[in-house]
Amino acid sequence: MPKRRFMFHTQGYDIPYLKKPILCSKDNAWLGHGFYYWLEEGDAIYWGQTAKRNYKKFGVYVSDIDCENILDTVFNEEHYIFWIRSIDKAVKNLYKTTNKKPTIECVNAYLMQKGGWDKSITGIMFQDLPVNDKILKVAGFYYRKRIQLAIFNNKIIINFIHNFDGEC
């Protein structure tokens, strides 16, 4: 796995341009509170066009990211198995203790704080499937991973540069 990756951060249009990425602190953020980056530019643009409509325009920023201590659930099988096992275990135990399904926020916070992940894991790389048919090269064929990195330790963000603005 490359130790350094070039990745894309999308935000609503803003002038002056941002000097650093914005922390996502939504409770339902998939991987918890963090700085979210896309691995591919097309996904960063699609995110801007769909999730930043309130701004009318969006900005895409680029960064080099030090990926040495991220949990890479996309390309590293050992990391992926660890990730699945940890979540399953946490969810099962939290449910057993409270008799309620835990929320995304609780699971993420539990792994980070009580599981000690916040001490050594600087980010988590995760994938889902692209939902944008326009950027699929073959209709209905979801062969490409849509990859995101949630960064918990901003020291791994080596630089931060405005790349371009787009229309929603």
């Binding site: 040495e68 201590n69 539990y110 330790n153």
Partner: peptide, 20 residues
């Protein structure tokens, strides 16, 4: 500041088990 601690998954798993 360079972070040079390699991920120790076994240690992390033990830490989670202990907490749970």
């Amino acid at each position: 500041l360079k972070i040079s601690i390699m991920l120790n998954l076994k240690e992390l798993e033990e830490s989670l088990d202990k907490a749970l």
